[in-house]
Design a protein around this nucleic acid. Structure first.
Length: 651
DNA sequence: ATGCCTGAA
DNA sequence: GACCTTCAGGCAT
């Protein structure tokens, strides 16, 4: 019936990957319609010709080119290599991973079914059997609506296109939060340390509870789900498995994976690589390009992956293939926040006044969040998005804690933004990083290695009052300030110094837009900004075309090509820090969790490091064989140097 | 340190 | 008729 791709369902040939890209991230959810292709076509047509669409097309093209480069590289790397021998080496690594597999923990992932939609249903039974969705910015669709291809995150106008009768219910966030709290409260009876991953999902470790109550995991989870249904009239799905990766990938209802390696591997074998946390649209395509669609395919192509470890991250993928992942569950860390920000989208504008107005609004929002949360920080990042959807960031750091007053944030933002004009923007945002928690009096300082020790001791500082200015500054910051600045009274100082702070830099007074574009650099005023900009502006292209693309990379029209590729995997496969007072240790290399003293832990680390050495030797041997030039820079280091902990463990 | 990208919810 | 927001983390330079 349906035409297949060759018949060009869309007028102009729209590539498969682009269709998929447009379709959005959350394909493959429960209750989807069968004919995805058809739906994708509707989606693509709905936005065809828009700047958004063009931008997606551009990104898709970039990716395609990148894939071509990777394939070429693969051919070079593979040439003349005894692949079998490489595989033998990898197999040894796999064998070692297997040995360390930890199946001792009962990890459960719980997930409320169509949460927003079902809460609405509860409050408004008239909606039953109607196709409806909750919409604010992202979309949460009822099951009825999902059958039409409506997914979360989809813009309303497209949802309507897919299902004209769709009933749109406004978002009622406070209501969902309230329900969420209630539900999480129930979960916490079973694991007080549970991790609430979002309003409607979470992870639990039921090992202790099951043991204490002499329950099987399935019985326990059944009880828990019954309790939720009884007390909230909402239904929850649960996956039971020995780690978080496996627990999350479950069908609806209640699903338990057998806790043995064979079952685990069988389960992983056909699992789409896309289901692995950390593998998104881009990495899915990258992997697909070398023939990997399922986790089982990882094994098939382990030789290539080994030779291209840099691009793909062999270690992580092997763990994934084996179904090995973190089984550590801990509550959301108090305030391990790394950044606070605010951003806003609007219809594109190019008037400088109006843009600055938006910036001011964003600054005000940020002020509220910073003050409300009790934060300050040292660097401010401006983000802007052109009407072409290209995104840029500009940052500036300070050597002291900044004032979180909106005037100050605005002034910093202005300083970063003004040199970029002329611009036509559809979004502007500000973010503060290098945070400092003003509600924690002392101890906790981002750079401090000792933090972990302090934390386990003071956990709940009995001081009920959180004041911004610590009463006893002297005791607070013993020695941490290496630059001799008075960091002891964060909020206070920053505030007071706002003006005086600006003695020799333009800061808040006035920004003095021009003059500096030339060689004269007033200290490191606007470091990265002007450099590339000057080239383009000196060209005189400034007039009309100017705001098509500010520059970002020198000369080339494209923002920047990079070889990065498979990112963010490496950090993810290792388990989180152990909870407070316990002596539970998690190996940063193999993620194994153990209850050991330092000596044993060190021994284990050494063991894991030696595994890394084996892997490295393997890789280097094969690389040598394949001869030259694969490695752009002479860096030979493969994986093993990614841990500072070798230092720590050395005692 | 800065900028860009990817991913997640 | 026009695709969000917030945050984390990795890589390159």
């Amino acid at each position: 019936m349906q035409s297949d791709a060759t018949e060009t369902p869309v007028p102009s040939q729209t590539s498969d990957s682009l269709l998929k890209r447009l379709a959005g991230p959350s394909t493959g959810k429960a209750g989807l319609a069968k004919d995805q292709t058809d739906i994708n076509r509707v989606i693509a047509e709905a936005s065809k010709g828009s700047k958004f669409y063009e931008n997606e097309k551009r990104k898709d093209k970039d990716l395609t080119e990148k894939i071509a480069r990777i394939l070429k590289q693969r051919d070079e790397v593979t040439k003349g290599v005894d692949m079998h021998q490489v595989e033998v080496g990898v197999d040894q690594v796999i064998a070692k991973m297997e040995v360390n597999r930890d199946l001792s923990q009962i990890i459960v992932h719980v997930d409320m079914d169509a949460f927003y939609a079902n809460v609405e249903l509860l409050d408004n039974p008239d909606l039953a059997n109607k196709k409806f969705g909750v919409c604010f910015m992202s979309f949460s669709a009822s099951y009825e609506a999902r059958k039409h291809g409506i997914r979360s995150g989809m813009p309303e106008y497209i949802a309507k296109k897919l299902c004209p009768e769709l009933v749109v219910v406004p978002l009622n966030m406070s209501r969902y939060s309230e329900m969420s709290q209630k539900i999480m409260g129930i979960f916490r009876r079973y694991d007080p340390n549970m991790h609430a991953a979002s309003v409607d999902e979470g992870y639990l470790n039921l090992t202790p509870y099951c043991e204490e109550h002499m329950l099987t995991a399935a019985e326990c989870v059944q009880q828990m789900r019954d309790a939720v249904q009884r007390e909230t009239s909402l239904t929850v799905s649960a996956g039971i498995a020995p780690n978080k990766l496996l627990a999350k990938n479950k069908p609806n209802g209640q699903f338990q994976l057998d806790f043995d390696p064979r079952s685990v591997k069988a389960f992983m074998h056909d699992l789409s690589i896309r289901k692995v946390p950390g593998v998104g649209r881009v990495n899915e395509r990258l992997l697909e390009s070398i023939g990997i669609k399922t986790c089982g395919d990882i094994f098939t192509h382990r030789g290539t992956l080994c030779l291209m470890d840099k691009q793909f991250g062999l270690h992580f993928l092997l763990q994934t293939y084996l179904g090995i992942a973190s089984n550590v569950v801990q509550p959301g860390q108090r305030e391990e926040r790394k950044s606070v920000g605010a951003e806003r989208t609007f219809t594109a504008i190019d008037s400088k006044e109006k843009i600055l107005k938006k910036l001011e609004e964003v600054a005000a929002e940020l002020e509220a969040d910073m003050e409300g949360g009790g934060w300050t920080g040292k660097t401010v990042t401006l983000k802007y998005k052109l009407d072409t959807y290209q995104v840029f960031t500009r940052a500036k750091s300070f050597d002291r804690w900044i004032s979180t007053k909106k005037e100050h944030l605005f002034s910093i933002g202005k300083e970063l933004l003004l040199p970029e004009f002329p611009l036509k923007l559809r979004l502007i945002g500000l973010r503060v990083t290098k945070l400092r928690d003003l509600r924690v009096d002392a101890d906790k300082q981002p750079g401090s290695i000792k933090r972990q020790f302090f934390d386990s001791v003071d956990a709940g500082p009995s001081s009920p009052r959180k004041r911004r200015r610590s009463a006893t500054p002297d005791e607070d910051e013993p020695t941490l300030s290496q630059d001799g600045f008075e960091e002891s009274m964060p909020g206070y100082l920053a505030h007071e110094e706002l003006d005086p702070d600006a003695p020799e830099y333009s800061g808040n007074s006035t920004i003095k837009p021009e003059s500096s574009s030339d060689g004269t650099k007033p200290v490191r005023q606007r470091p990265p900004v002007s450099a590339p900009a000057s080239t383009s502006s000196s060209q005189g292209t400034s007039s009309h075309v100017a705001y098509l693309k500010p520059q970002s990379s020198s000369s080339s029209t494209e923002p920047r090509k990079r070889g990065s590729s498979f990112v963010s995997m490496k950090g993810k496969d290792r388990a989180e820090e152990p909870p407070d007072g316990r002596e539970m240790q998690t190996c940063p290399l193999c993620s194994k969790i153990m209850q050991v003293d330092n000596r044993d832990f060190n021994a284990h680390i050494d063991f894991c490091l030696s595994k890394g050495a084996i892997r490295e030797a393997q890789a280097m041997a094969s690389a040598d064989k394949s001869s030259i030039s694969l490695r752009p820079t002479g860096t030979h280091k493969k994986v093993p140097d990614k841990r500072p902990s070798s230092k720590q463990t050395k005692r």
